[in-house]
Structure formats: C-alpha cells, structure tokens
Computed example of a mutant assay.
Amino acid sequence: MSLLDPTVRSATGAATEKEVTGRDVAAPTTLLEESWRDFVFAEVWTRPDLPRRARFLVAMASAATCGLADGRIDDFVRGALTTNVIGLAELREAALHLAVYSGWGNGDRLDQAVTRVATALGLPPVDGPPIRSAPWDAQERNDQGHAEFAKVMTFPPGPPSSPYLVGINNFVFGEMWCRRGLDERSRRWITLVGVCESGAEIPIRSHVHAAMASGNCEPQEMLEFVLQYGTHAGWPKASRINSVVLEMIDKVKKGLPWHG
C-alpha cells in the first residue's frame, strides 16, 4: 500500500497557492488556513480534468457570491492575470456576466476586485465595447435574443409573456450572451455558479443540461466543477448539484431533454 506524504502535500499546496494567487504565501497559522493549502490548493486545484482557466472562473464567481473575503476574490483575479490565463478585458466581461446570474451587487464585488488588482499591478485600463453604441430595431433585438437563447440553451424559448421574460430575451440573451469579449464556454462556468447559488430548480437543471448538450462542457469537467464549486459553497449545496449533473449526463448521453 502506498502512503501519502503530508510533507509533499503541503509543499504542493504551497507552490500551487503561490501560482494561483500570484503572491507570496505565508505559512498557515490556523487549521483553516492549513486546509486551504493542504486540500483546496494541493488536492483540488491540481486535479487535471478541469482546465486552470475554468477553475479561475468558478473560483472568482464563487468567491464573489458565497461570502468569501475580498482578499480571496483579489487572489483569484491576481492569479488569473499574472499567469496570463484570463485577460483584463475578459475579467470585465466576466463581472458583467456574473451580475446577470448572481445580481448586480455580486457582479460589482468582482468588478471592484478587478479594479483593485489591475491598479496594484499597474495595468492600463481596457476599452471594452459598450453594451450598445448605436440605435437598433426593437424587433431585431427580440429576434437576436430568441436566436441566442436557442443556441445557448439548446431548445427554443417561449414567448416573453412577462417583464422578467422580456428582460431575459432582450438583455440577457439579446445583448449580454451575444457579446464576444468572453467566449461562450467561459460564460458557462460563471452561469453555472450563479444558477447553483440561486437554488432554483429549473435554472439549475436546464443550464447543467445545456452546458453539456451544447458541447461547451464535457461530463468529466462538470463533475470536477461540482468539486471546485463545493470548496466555496459547501458540501451540502454541492451534493445537490452533483445529483443533477449525474442525471443530466445520462440524459444528454441518451439525447433526452432536461425536463420530463
């Protein structure tokens, strides 16, 4: 029987934490700090089945929505920038996307972290394209939202019969998902954190299914997502998401819709 060496695990965790946070790492002084090094960074962040870019996006979105301290959000933003895994303009888009799925307050937490870290690193501001820069036809906006919804969710939308549904069609899909400053696959990971945190059954099930049915996320990646998310949201929340992911892996494999 092979033995796991705690010294090796701690060394791996310290090295990974330094890379992921983009800062020097002090020796832990509490059991909680030790667990960040010896489990979260040594065992979760080093797993191969979820790319580092996805882990950063999940970590940042989770940190902003699950009550982590601002310093933790800053750590993930700094690590993403210093390792060149995610660019500054993409992080601005990520904050906008998070606002839609977790509320503008949580999106603002991430946006402010990006500002703090970019300022500390001496990075020049980026000029992202505005939400809209010129007038456009209302019907065009509606049609674009319908088409983007069908592509992202892999099923056609119903008629927008309430102000809430109009907002989904016209802004969420008609404007925000159409933006090309952040790729669709990256938007998936932020969306998944948002819907998982919401606890809302329909968004959780439909978005988990769509992430795989669209081809954006592989089944093994989705299982790894649950572990990454669980380190910030807690095991009880992650347990529920794990059950949904397993169910939807089977449905997608069989060509079945998310419901029924």
Rank of each mutant, 00 (worst) to 15 (best):
S2P: 15
D5H: 13
T7E: 03
T7Q: 15
R9P: 00
R9W: 03
T12P: 02
V20Y: 01
R23P: 01
R23T: 07
D24S: 14
T29H: 06
L31H: 05
L31T: 05
L31S: 03
S35D: 03
S35P: 02
D38R: 03
F39M: 13
F41G: 01
F41N: 03
W45F: 14
A63K: 11
G67Q: 06
A80K: 10
L81A: 08
I86G: 04
L91Q: 12
A94P: 05
L96K: 00
H97E: 14
L98M: 05
W104I: 12
L110A: 13
A118W: 05
T119A: 15
T119R: 14
P125R: 04
G128Y: 02
I131D: 04
R132T: 13
A138R: 05
R141Q: 08
G158I: 11
S161K: 09
P163K: 05
V166S: 15
I168E: 09
F171K: 09
V172I: 08
F173W: 09
F173V: 10
R188M: 09
V195W: 07
S198L: 02
I202P: 00
I204T: 14
H207P: 05
A211S: 15
M212T: 01
M212Y: 05
N216T: 12
E218N: 12
M222W: 00
F225N: 04
F225T: 10
L227I: 15
H232N: 11
A233T: 07
G234L: 13
G234T: 14
S239K: 07
S243Q: 09
S243W: 02
V245K: 00
D250R: 02
V252E: 05
L256C: 10
P257I: 08
H259A: 07
